[in-house]
C-alpha cells in the first residue's frame, strides 16, 4: 500500500513538472494554457493523495476551473495578429527567472526542513513523537479541521471574507458599468 501511495504521488509530481515545463516552452499559447490547466489539476490531485481534501478541492475549483476559464477567455480576447510563438528570447528574463526560482526554493527548504527532521523541535513538536506530528500535520488540510477552525475560532474573518467577495462583485460592476451604453 505504501509503495502504491508513493508511486501515485511520484506520477502526479512528474505530471506537474512536465506540464509546467511544457507550459513555459510550448510554441502555441493555446498549448501553454492547456498544459497549465493539467498542472493545476495535478497539484489538486497531489493534495488529495495527501488527504488534504479541502486544499485539493480549492485547488481544483479555483485554479483548475476558475483560473483556467479566465486564461481561456484571455486567449479568446487576443486577436489572430498577436504573436503566436512564445520563445524565451530575452536572456535577462531567463536569468532573473532562475534567480527567482532559486530564491523561492531556498526559502521553501528553509521553512520545511525543521518540520520534517525527526530530531528537531519543529513547529509541531508539542504533538509528541514524529509519527504523531506527521499525523497532526495530515489533519490540517482536511475539510473537517478547517471547518471547525473557521466556524468556531475564526468567525469574523469568515464573515469579512464575504464582504471582500462583495467588494469584488461591486468592482466588476464598476468596471463593466462604463460599457453599458454601447449595447
Amino acid at each position: 500500500m505504501e509503495f502504491l501511495n508513493s508511486a501515485v504521488f511520484l506520477i502526479f509530481a512528474a505530471m506537474i513538472i512536465f506540464s509546467s515545463v511544457f507550459a513555459v516552452f510550448a510554441h502555441k499559447i493555446e498549448y501553454s494554457v492547456l498544459s497549465a490547466v493539467v498542472c493545476f489539476l495535478s497539484v489538486g490531485a497531489l493534495f488529495l493523495t495527501l488527504s488534504a481534501d479541502f486544499i485539493g478541492a480549492s485547488q481544483i475549483m479555483i485554479y483548475g476551473v476558475g483560473v483556467s476559464i479566465l486564461l481561456a477567455f484571455a486567449i479568446m480576447f487576443t486577436g489572430k495578429d498577436s504573436p503566436k510563438s512564445l520563445y524565451l528570447t530575452n536572456p535577462l528574463r531567463v536569468f532573473l527567472g532562475f534567480v527567482l526560482v532559486l530564491t523561492f526554493l531556498s526559502v521553501l527548504i528553509f521553512f520545511i526542513s525543521p518540520v520534517l527532521d525527526p530530531k528537531s523541535d519543529g513547529a509541531f513538536s508539542s504533538y509528541g513523537s514524529f509519527a504523531a506530528q506527521i499525523e497532526s500535520i495530515r489533519q490540517i488540510g482536511t475539510a473537517k479541521f478547517i471547518g471547525r477552525r473557521i466556524f468556531c475560532d475564526y468567525v469574523l474573518p469568515f464573515e469579512l471574507l464575504s464582504l471582500l467577495l462583495l467588494a469584488g462583485i461591486v468592482g466588476v460592476g464598476y468596471l463593466a458599468g462604463g460599457s453599458k451604453k454601447d449595447v
Binding site: 475549483m61 479555483i62 476551473v65 476558475g66 483560473v67 476559464i69 479566465l70 477567455f73 467577495l165 469584488g168 462583485i169 466588476v172
Partner: peptide, 8 residues
C-alpha cells in the same frame, strides 16, 4: 468569468 470565480 470573474463573477463565476467569486461565487465559486
Amino acid at each position: 468569468a470573474i463573477l463565476f470565480i467569486i461565487f465559486e
